[in-house]
Write a protein that binds this DNA or RNA. Sequence first.
DNA 1: GCTCCGTACCTGGTTCGTCTAGGTAATAGC
DNA 2: GCTATTACCTAGACGAACCAGGTACGGAGC
Lengths: 110, 110
Amino acid sequence: MDTKLLTGTLEMMMLEVLSQGPSYGYEIVQTVLSRSNGQFELKEGSLYPALHRLERQKLLGSDWSEHEGRRRKYYKLTAAGRKALTARRSEWQSFAQGVNGVLGLDYGIA
Amino acid sequence: MDTKLLTGTLEMMMLEVLSQGPSYGYEIVQTVLSRSNGQFELKEGSLYPALHRLERQKLLGSDWSEHEGRRRKYYKLTAAGRKALTARRSEWQSFAQGVNGVLGLDYGIA
DNA sequence: GCTCCGTACCTGGTTCGTCTAGGTAATAGC
DNA sequence: GCTATTACCTAGACGAACCAGGTACGGAGC
C-alpha cells in the first residue's frame, strides 16, 4: 500500500490502541496489524519516534517493566491523550467524509 | 484541519476532478474546495508541483490556452491517468476501511 | 558452543509530499 | 496609482514515515 496515506493517522491509531489499556511498542504493532486485517504493519522507525513524540506532548505516560527476562516499556494514555484521541477521531471522520465528497462517494455517514 | 492527513490524497483528488473533464490549476482548487464542503483548500505550493509530477508520469497531458487576457494551462487525464485514478480510489477505500477497523468503526462497507 | 529466530527497544540519516513565502503578469474597480 | 482577483511558477523549509543499523535476552536445534 501507499505508505503516504498513513501520514497523520499513525499517531491516532496508536492512541486508539492505548485507549483500551496500557501496551508497549511491539504489542501495539501486532494490535494495529490485526485490527487492520493485516493491512498496516507499523515500522519501528515510525513507531518509536511517534511514541516519544506523543510522550513529549504529554499525551502518553510510560513505565518500564520486566517480563520473562525482556524489558518492556508500557505506555498509557494521559487525560490529555484521551482528549486528543477524541479530537483526532473526529478530524479523521470529517477528513474521510471530505475525501469521499470529492470522490463522489457521499453514501451514508452524514 | 490537520494538513498531514492530506498527504497522499491530493493527487488522487486532482485526478478525480480531471476525470470529469479538462481543467486548470486555479479551477481545480475551487472544485476541490466546493466538493469537500469548504474543507480542503489546496495550496499552490502543493498543487503546481503535483500537476507537474503527474504530467511527468504521463498521467496528465496539458495545453496552454488564453481566456480574457489570462493564460491558462488546461490539464486532462491520459488513459494511464484514468487507470491510476481507479487504482488510487480502491487504495483509498481499503485504507479508510483499515483505519476504521483500527478505530472500531467497521459499520457497513464490508 | 554456536547459530538462528523471535521478542523488545532505540536512532541517524534519507526520502518525499506539503507548505510558506516569494515572484511574474493581466484585468477590473476605486 | 493602488488593491483585489485571476493565473501561473518555484526555492527552500518542515516534518512524518522509513531504511538500515545497532543492542540485548530467551529458546530451539545441532
